[in-house]
Amino acid sequence: MSKMKDSKKKFTFTTEKFLILIIVLYCIVVTCVNPGFFSAATLFDMIKSSAGSMVVAMGLLLVIITGGIDVSFTAVAISSGYIATTIMMNTGINNIFFGFAIAIIIGIVLGLINAVLIHVTKMEPFIITLATQSIFHGCLTTFVGTKNIGSVDIPTAITKFGGARLFTMTDEYGNKTGLSIYILIVIAVVALTWWIMYKTMLGRSVFALGCSAESARRAGFNSWKTHLFVYAYIGMLGAIYGMLSIGGVNACNPVSMVGTELTIIAAVIIGGAKVTGGSGSILGTLLGVFIMYLFNQTLVFLGFSSSWNNLFLGVVLIVSIVITSYQERRKNRRLFIFTE
């Protein structure tokens, strides 16, 4: 009986399918042009460089599902990362877990500041977080410092962490490649986010708030708690993002990262999260970030320089949002909701 039902189910055109289609087609084209593309080295490289974005995208996903947005997470990332690194250096505690703990505490505090401002003033989260982005980053660079911590000075724990691999292999030319332990963190964060989203009441409240704030209130959800949680969560993940990217480049430049937030938001939106709230999926988000890095790292195989990256990303982004928004518009028009 249930089988019959399944076969009847119409094929629906979801964002995930669209993205997978693009990825598959793209990979086929690239492999045809340049078979060298398909190598473990490329994949490992991509995993390591995209790890931070994947992690913070999970937080962004939750924020967007509630109907909010956060553009301050890059400032949170570099602030917490830089302060944590500095404290590690000054105290001499050369332990990566200590560094993470400090960064995460700072990240959560900054996230909570966002949450309070957004919940209390009830103003556009975009504008609020734009302001806090400047404030967080301004505070860091004014009061903590703007000195770049180079690979010589950086605590060895971070260097070790950034270079750590699950396994290493040597290819035919003798180059060593390996899978960075970053993937463990990505898996852990994705699993945690999945668990929160689908297995906890808190996660349900995130969806409920984004679906309809009024219905959520009637059901007895506490929007204050949900706001505190999602912004603190992205603060925490922002801090991890900061530590991962510091480890990745084995240096810590306090004026880096800020300015890249819109690209990561674009990736999450490509993944199908709706900025009006209520829907978004982990798989879609991961695919969105993946596409971004796929273009970033493999356009060279097609003979394009990396400067074409944004062009491809922009086209994919616009096509995917036009498809979803236009469907939504037609549905709304039938219900006499006249959105522009």
Partner: peptide, 21 residues
């Protein structure tokens, strides 16, 4: 009916893309 933030974020990426390319 694309949300203004999303629409202009998309075109921002696109225009920057055209410029860089």
């Amino acid at each position: 009916s694309v949300h203004p933030i999303v629409a202009t974020l998309g075109t921002m990426t696109l225009y920057n893309g055209i410029s860089t390319a």
